[in-house]
Nucleic acid binder design. Sequence first.
DNA 1: ATTTTCAAT
Length: 194
Amino acid sequence: MEASPSRGTSCLLDENTFTENFMNQMNPRKTYLCYKVEILDGDARIPLDEKKGFVRNKGANEPGEPCHAERYFLDRICSWNLDRELHYRLTCFISWTPCVTCAQKLADFLGKNSHVSLHIFASRIYSLSDYKAGLRTLQAAGAQIAIMTSKEFEHCWENFVDHQGKPFQPWVGLEVVSQDLCNNLQAILQTQEN
DNA sequence: ATTTTCAAT
């Protein structure tokens, strides 16, 4: 097999992979997380394009220990050794909101890294176990959590997908499902009830 | 009140 360690397109998602995983009315059993990094300098944002990419979870059907996408994301962030003298804004676009365990890990990270702010846009709400408490914990730690709208889907398409020059084509129902999920998320984040 | 979803009925 031919080795190609650093091809230019290696940080781009295949078109079908993006659609299959981010279509908000589907329920795939895997998670993709696209991320980008900016330095905040006053009102200016300086993108660090070399620190842009995506991770996906390792499922229970794959060799080794299963691992949620967020853990790979946190590993990458830590490997960058971000300068504590600067302020960074991390934005991630994730196909499922973090589970309660990952939400806690992200909250812990934010608590220890006040030079980093985190904005999360999710395609769907992962709703098992104590997911509501997890999302509230993450929000309380300073993370901004929102549902992806057509604006974010298009942004992902333009920035993380090997789209071969094709424009983003919204799928039927995108807006309605997104709005519905947005309402659900707001209800979760604004109350303390389960 | 709401789900079945980071795979395996």
